[in-house]
């Protein structure tokens, strides 16, 4: 079936994207919106919204996305790393009306950076902007935080179908750039990228992640 990683030449890119976020932030609706919008219901796989695939065409290159939903519940986190190993991208969703869900995103960012280093493209997504009136996470805070950890920040509303298409398109482009840079760095070794990345790579805490842990957040509660 799929040849893991990104192929060289004119081959199709296969990217794995993990979806992280607390229980009620709406990540399932977000990804369902994205996958059912352009295509019809049959693109919802037999695993419903847990595992979705999407085929794209960006700048003449074919891209296959495999979107892995993860459980938000704390009790399933022990095996988090096996979900996001070999991921090319991660979408970390929080609910703008729920400060707590934003804190969770910060924890995941730390863990992802620790396990995958800088190879993974991070998207931090404030969902439910249709509930702007009840916002509890300030736009400035969220965006500053995202920048400080090398992530991009997006605002979406699954309900109004806002910002979702842009989010995924942007992520795909970034993952393609990363893959291309990777290919160049490795010379001809592009086809080996899947095998080379087998297993979880552990790197030391990034200095930026450390500073974030120190003074990134302003309010607690």
């Amino acid at each position: 079936m799929a040849a893991g990683g990104a192929g060289g030449g004119n081959k199709t890119y296969s990217f794995k994207v993990v979806l992280l976020g607390e229980g009620c932030v709406g990540k399932t609706s977000l990804v369902l919106r994205y996958c059912e919008n352009k295509f019809n219901d049959k693109h919802i796989t037999t695993l419903q919204a847990s595992f979705l695939t999407k085929k794209l065409n960006i700048a003449g290159r074919r891209v296959n996305l495999a979107i892995w939903d993860t459980a938000g519940q704390e009790r399933f986190h022990a095996l988090g790393p096996i979900y996001y190993r070999d991921s090319n991208g991660a979408i970390l969703v929080y609910d703008i009306t729920d400060e707590d869900s934003f804190q969770k995103v910060k924890n995941w960012v730390k863990e992802l950076r620790k396990m995958l280093g800088n190879e993974i493209c991070l998207c931090i997504v404030g969902n439910k902007i249709d509930l702007e009136k009840e916002r509890h996470v300030s736009v400035q805070e969220a965006e500053e935080y995202a920048e400080s950890v090398g992530a991009k920040h997006y605002h979406t509303s699954a309900k109004l179908n806002k910002g979702i298409e842009e989010l995924f398109l942007d992520l795909c482009k970034r993952m393609m750039e990363t893959a291309q840079a990777d290919e160049k760095a490795k010379g001809n070794g592009a086809s080996q990228s899947g095998a080379a990345r087998r297993g979880v790579q552990i790197v030391d805490d990034e200095p930026q992640a450390a500073t974030v842990a120190g003074g990134g957040c302003c309010s607690s509660g």
Partner: peptide
């Protein structure tokens, strides 16, 4: 094989392991 681990099969295996661990 790694090729399978990115797709539906890989997702299912990962989920199964997660459930077992729970």
């Amino acid at each position: 094989h790694e090729g399978y681990l990115i797709g539906e099969e890989g997702y299912c295996l990962t989920s199964m392991q997660s459930a077992l661990s729970y």
